[in-house]
């Protein structure tokens, strides 16, 4: 582990000043990825900027319009321990409660998980199907990026030097909708997804037809991916296992996985289908339970 300086700015302005000093910077939120990567000399920096003292990055705002803003450095445990969030956004808790173990969730954040940009990150598919927007700040202002446009490749995002991920903004969700996210891992905890799927299912007023759907997959390509074909396959259809199977087929077709130590190409394509189908079933169950 190379030596670096540690800065703990208490405001965004201070952080941008530090970012502009010409040194190689990295951001510290929960540190559960970054500290390990630095220790193992997989990444290098001259200064580590701790974002946890900047109020904007540590706040959670349940908006009056029905949306939710999550500061990028808010620990995952803060989300699932928040009863209202747990009740209204169970699809977020699906991912927040399985990233690492308990001790990781005390520190790790959605923002950190996104910026680490692992194709297998558990936060990504869930946020993608929520249609979440990422608010990115720099010294010159802010911009919004849809989550699905945030990833540039394994370990790479579209964040530019001088930019900080400020918050995750989740818009109001459609009526009669629910999100479900899950992954497949060989153990029951403490594992990286072999493949994962998030689904948002919205029913029409009759409850008999699917009004809209969003489907996202993780760990089956260089970045997490939206699968429009899977959503199209179910839209307007009855929410039946036959319908969901079609989405599963579309998901498997869209998946472009590799074989590595965590799983094989064939296994991952197969799992993309299985997980998508099961996610639809569980999302449907959530809608029905909410009624």
């Amino acid at each position: 582990m190379e030596a670096f300086e540690y800065l703990a700015p208490s405001s965004l302005a201070e952080a941008f000043t530090a970012l502009g000093n010409g040194k190689r910077s990295m951001m510290l939120a929960g540190g559960t990825d970054v500290i390990v990567q630095l220790r193992e000399n997989r990444r290098h920096c001259d200064q580590l900027i701790d974002l946890k003292h900047i109020p904007e990055l540590m706040s959670v705002d349940i908006r009056s319009d029905g949306g939710l803003d999550i500061g990028a450095a808010v620990p995952l445990a803060d989300l699932y321990n928040n009863r209202e969030i747990a009740r209204r956004w169970p699809g977020l808790v699906d991912s927040a409660s399985i990233i690492g173990g308990t001790a990781i969730q005390s520190r790790a954040s959605f923002g950190g998980n996104l910026c680490n940009a692992s194709p297998a990150a558990d936060s990504s598919p869930s946020l993608m199907v929520h249609d979440a927007r990422l608010v990115v700040a720099s010294a010159s202002g802010t911009r919004e990026v849809p989550v699905e446009a945030f990833f540039a490749g394994p370990g790479r995002s579209v964040l530019q030097p001088g930019e900080i991920l400020l918050r995750i903004s989740i818009p109001p969700q459609p009526a009669r909708s629910a999100v479900f996210y899950h992954r497949f891992i060989p153990r029951n905890e403490m594992d990286i997804a072999v493949a994962s799927a998030g689904v948002r299912l919205a029913l029409d007023e009759s409850g008999e037809r699917i009004a809209s759907a969003r489907v996202a997959l993780g760990a089956v390509g260089p970045t997490p991916m939206m699968v429009a074909a899977a959503a199209e396959a179910v839209t307007g259809q009855a929410p039946t296992s036959e319908t969901f199977a079609k989405a599963g087929e579309a998901a498997a077709a869209a998946a472009q996985p590799i074989t590595d130590m965590r799983g094989s190409m064939a296994q991952r394509k197969h799992l993309a289908s299985v997980l998508t189908v099961r996610a639809f079933e569980r999302a449907l169950q959530r809608i029905r339970e909410a009624r």
């Binding site: 540690y6 540190g31 500290i35 580590l48 946890k52 690492g100 001790a103 005390s106 520190r107 403490m190």
Partner: peptide, 27 residues
């Protein structure tokens, strides 16, 4: 393990359990 995967270094930081190998002293 020194990378957050075994829990042998667990401590309670501000009321929450964390792996002390994944927190910096300066924090």
């Amino acid at each position: 393990c020194n990378n957050g995967n075994c829990g042998a270094c667990a401590v309670i930081l501000n009321g929450r359990v964390v792996n002390s190998c994944c927190v910096l002293g300066v924090e």
